[in-house]
Design a protein around this nucleic acid. Structure first.
Lengths: 110, 110
DNA sequence: TCCAATATTCTAGAAACATGGAAATGAATA
DNA sequence: TATTCATTTCCATGTTTCTAGAATATTGGA
């Protein structure tokens, strides 16, 4: 991942409604949720949510598929993974000794 | 972590110079770097970098200590860890079956 | 074909943010 | 104390982003 992608992903998440939309989709799992459900859950107008979801999509954090009249969005955890990799690249110059003291445990749950 | 902290952390990183400053400190490891070194490495005026570092500090992503005339900053990976936890909370409603298909491997290196 | 449901694009005013010069602060040294 | 170095705070400016109303697709069903 290069810097601009990282900035795009981080900017996409650095906004309340979009962050909540993303987390909602993370919770929903691979089935995903239609745009309208996201709008209702977040209590935000449909057009605003649509903009949010398109920003998350451009950032590679969610993807979508059409199902009849619905467009179903789902979280793309690969996008988050790449972001984390970028953030922590060459951590402690790669020295595991040093790294340990900083990292403690960085292992995500789930 | 609550939402506002997450937004603060994400906003702090969602900006080129700050993102690079953070990554530089991640690379530097526990020893950290003085503010001036960060400014030179990023080729950004000292006062601008100082603002950047204070934003990262408020976000809990870096910490600092004074050493003589220098103020030495270091990455605080615990801050990143909390952020990741928040982003992925209740992933797939906690169902490991579903989760697997989304996660593949989310384990960071280092 | 016509209508209802769902989602997206366009737009612009309001709000928030980024930047860097100048001045101020804090710390070491002569 | 005076001087220098390192960093921070103050502030004005220009830029970007957020939001939601209105208009425009797109799809399925009567």
């Amino acid at each position: 991942m290069e810097m601009n992608n990282a900035v795009t992903s981080l900017s996409a998440l650095a906004q309340e409604s979009r962050l909540e939309a993303f987390r909602l989709l993370v919770r929903a799992g691979p089935e995903g949720l239609p745009s309208g459900d996201v709008a209702r859950a977040l209590n935000v107008p449909a057009n605003t949510v649509s903009t949010h979801l398109s920003i998350l999509t451009r950032a590679g954090l969610v993807s979508s598929r059409r199902d009849g009249r619905h467009v179903i969005y789902q979280a793309n955890l690969g996008g988050i993974r790449k972001l984390i990799d970028y953030l922590l690249a060459d951590c402690c110059q790669g020295d595991p000794e040093l790294c340990g003291s900083l990292l403690e445990q960085l292992t995500p749950h789930c």
